[in-house]
Design a protein around this nucleic acid. Structure first.
Lengths: 332, 332
DNA sequence: CTGAAAGCGCTTACAG
DNA sequence: CTGAAAGCGCTTACAG
């Protein structure tokens, strides 16, 4: 039941050679208008479409872009992927998705698979474990294979020699801090469930650069974070919270509510959220918007640029995007 | 800088034929142990790995599975995709992801692309628009192409002749209704932002089968839904809410809070949520868990089964999974 | 046990 | 303007 229409079958039916059929369909200058016409008509009639695998073998291109996402259940990454798809789907490439599930081992396997000739280019956000262990050799190795690679969101401190796309995490938190200051907050604490992630560190640094008497509440273990947070709020000193990630934001709001605090002069909250969900939630939280789809689009564009201009000496690009603050109901 | 190690280069270096090299690496019985040894050693030394495109062309398999997701920003689908990945990543296949963004047109393009020899099998959840217009010809056409296809979640009323994986939406709501009855709710309303989706209709039907004096609040337009919902709550009659989708659930909770109602004898809420986010939210909403990852796993398994047993006469599978109720803080 | 040949479905110099 | 030939990198009957 497979598609049996091939160049060969068309050629036989038309009593001409395979090369002529191929050239006709590719609109080669070499072929007469009349022959092209005949070939194209029959091709359409028979529903011919070229075997993509054969074309790829011939062209020595896979027409595939490999994407490695740490965790697709994180809405930030889901939106980034959507942005990537938006750009890639207008190109000749397909997206092969892999999920590292934050595991270094899995990430290595993915890159290994990609580098065995399965993709023409790679888009990757490194896993949490990779981030912690600071093991980047498997990524650097890709350079030797000559496969263009673009890193997004979690960017190692030391440059690896690849294009990168990210937001300015440091400045984002500085802006958030300044925003809360405008709202007359005096004791602003920083809450994070990602203290070891690169982006988490940058955000913390941004906070520390502003706070005179810093209060950092940071645990990876959510239950621990929750407990400590509740304790800290009980003391009644804190009147502003900046949360460094989606989970921390949810816990902050939850702790505030449970404490019976109200979003007024009593306390304010700003943090990272899942934008779509936040829009409908109560209270709608004042948030730092990273514009994840835009990150995805820029990442994909950066790769396509490398793929199209085969120039090896294009300098490495460091693309920094701006975050914005979306006012909600948790800062009055 | 491309990988220049090929069967040919190995053969030349060993002074034997390409066929012998190929057979050795594939552990053919025909080849002497000694030769195999030599070949494998050199292959390892040179870091040889077979060109996947060439293998595919030869084997007449793409080793790719095409997945069409209506909206990756919906956490339900993100989790389904994770489940799919979990199973597929243990097979020889790769996942090609496409997002229809709920558009029939885009969906057609995806299927068209897939059917041009780009994938060996297809996993699809139909777009909202497809669902509404009840246009399924582009899906049915896939059967003629001989490409196995499995539908998940949104399953057309009339069987299309493909394997399907879904939950029992009707029964889920019946259970939810019965649960609220146990909690002494007397006036249970049904709130939906997906009145025209198949799953939305089934859920509504489940509700209608139980309610004596049904109150259905259903609008696709979220602002309209929100308004009507607030009006209805103001009347003070409703003491139980069943929400048919994530957005409706968020709006219900938001409306309840704004109304100043408390989750006690006053009112209860049960509905669909984003499980990960709900876990950390306040209040934690009592929810109907569809186990999306399991849906993904089952969907992928169903396809792999078809792909492996080339038998055409395997009867069509209708896999129905159970939902469960997770007790939260919105039903006391 | 090894290798030459054909073939998977295409494209593209090159001859005529 | 058309076609035969070689080749992309493999696999696999078939001969020897």
């Amino acid at each position: 039941m497979k598609n049996v229409v091939s160049l060969k079958s068309l050629a036989k039916e038309l009593n001409i050679s395979v090369s002529t059929v191929s050239k006709s369909l590719n609109d080669s200058e070499e072929i007469s208008a009349q022959t092209k016409e005949r070939v194209k008509n029959l091709a359409k009639l028979r529903g011919y479409s070229p075997n993509p695998i054969a074309v790829r073998l011939q062209k020595q291109e896979t027409m595939q872009i490999g994407v490695i996402i740490p965790n697709i259940e994180n809405p930030f990454f889901a939106s980034v992927l959507k942005g990537i798809d938006e750009i890639v789907s207008t190109s000749k490439y397909n997206i092969i998705t892999f999920f590292s599930n934050e595991s270094l081992e899995k990430e290595k396997e993915c890159l290994d698979h990609f580098s065995r000739g399965n993709v023409d280019g790679i888009l990757i956000c490194i896993a949490e474990e990779t981030n912690k262990k600071k093991t980047f050799d498997h990524i650097i190795d890709i350079k030797q294979k000559g496969i263009p690679l673009v890193l997004f969101d979690r960017i190692p401190m030391q440059p690896l020699g690849f294009d990168v796309v990210h937001v300015n995490d440091y400045d984002s938190i500085v802006s958030a801090y300044e925003y809360l200051e405008e709202k007359k907050c005096k004791n602003i604490a920083f809450v994070s469930s990602i203290p070891t992630l690169i982006v988490g560190r940058l955000r913390e640094d941004g906070y520390l650069s502003k706070a005179k008497n810093p209060i950092v509440i940071a645990y990876e273990e959510l239950s621990e974070l929750q407990l400590t947070l509740q304790e800290s709020l009980k003391e009644g000193k804190i009147d502003g919270l900046i949360s460094a990630d989606i989970n921390a934001t949810l816990l902050c709001n939850s702790a505030i509510q449970k404490q019976g605090l109200t979003y007024s002069n009593e306390i304010s909250l700003i943090g990272y959220v899942n934008a779509a969900q936040n829009e409908l939630s109560y209270p709608k939280i004042t948030s730092i918007d990273q514009h994840p789809e835009e990150i995805g689009r820029q990442t994909a564009k950066a790769l396509l640029l490398r793929l199209e201009s085969k120039l090896e000496n294009v300098p490495v690009n460091d693309i920094v995007l701006n975050t914005t603050i979306t006012i909600g109901e948790t800062s009055v």
